[in-house]
């Protein structure tokens, strides 16, 4: 049970953005994608989530080509949290979270209410439900979008072999305690059977919470494996062009 990314290439006009990228996102695992700005991280996420089509290569969800999965079924298999966008009209927080809830044949109110209660406790945002979304702080908005991304996977009416959550820098704008909270929720989700694909910038966070890490630079995967295999001073220094040191006793990465 996994997402297989096979030899993806993508270019805009003459500009090659991704070159021959291959990855595996497994169920029950957190795969973190790291790399310098402009290395193609978000583009790769867009291709895996199905927003854009690669020029060559394929994405397989549990051995089914993404091209052959219609967009409604895609929404049931994976949810995506991107860099959040503002909402023009004055929706309440509850309404925004509800947008993530996928309707089955019928809308069963109790099911939704239970899911809402669950996600409200997990993300500790129950007290915000009746507030206006637009009056929240940037960090609170992120948390609400995160809750929406989670609740999308909570309707068990649909038969799917596995479910995936993809996140593009979800911890931007969050303070360190909320950052940890979010990562811990994701970690818990892997135990419930989810596969997590996450773009991160924080090296220490990625090292400590990932099951697999991929480094991408200039559109190419330059390291992929367990955190202990890829977090080597030599590799990191080469990727970021910066003296990165790894302290083996405290397991901390430092670069200044």
């Amino acid at each position: 049970m996994s997402i297989e990314v096979n030899n993806i290439s993508y270019s805009i006009k003459d500009l090659q953005i991704l070159k021959d990228v291959s990855l595996t996102i497994k169920k029950n695992e957190v795969l973190s994608l790291l790399g310098p700005n402009g290395s193609g991280k978000s583009t790769l996420l867009k291709i895996i989530s199905g927003d854009i089509n690669p020029k060559s290569g394929s994405v397989l969800f549990d051995n089914i080509n993404l091209d052959n999965i219609n967009i409604i079924d895609r929404a049931r298999i994976r949810s995506v949290m991107s860099q959040s966008q503002d909402i023009i009209y004055d929706f309440s927080v509850k309404e925004v979270i509800e947008m993530g809830w996928l309707e089955g044949k019928e809308f069963i109110t109790e099911k939704f209410d239970n899911a809402l209660k669950k996600v409200g406790m997990e993300c500790e945002i129950s007290h915000l439900f009746d507030k206006s979304f637009n009056q929240l702080s940037g960090g609170e908005k992120r948390k609400v979008h995160f809750a929406r991304t989670l609740i999308q996977m909570y309707n068990k009416d649909f038969e799917t072999k596995s479910r995936y959550i993809m996140l593009d820098e979800p911890t931007a704008n969050l303070d360190i305690s909320h950052e940890l909270q979010l990562i811990n929720i994701l970690k818990k989700k892997t135990l419930e059977g989810f596969g997590i694909f996450i773009i991160l910038h924080d090296l220490n966070l990625a090292y400590h919470f990932s099951d697999k890490v991929a480094f991408i630079k200039e559109g190419k995967i330059c390291a992929f494996g367990n955190p202990d295999e890829v977090f080597k001073e030599k590799i990191l220094t080469k990727i970021y062009g910066l003296d990165v040191s790894f302290d083996n006793s405290t397991k901390k990465i430092s670069y200044y």
Binding site: I87, M99, L102
Partner: peptide, 20 residues
């Protein structure tokens, strides 16, 4: 109506939620 609600998240988001 429902699709219009989802569209308020932005077109890419609505697309990911299954709106054509």
């Amino acid at each position: 109506s429902r699709k219009l609600d989802l569209l308020q998240l932005g077109e890419p988001e609505a697309y990911r939620l299954g709106v054509d």
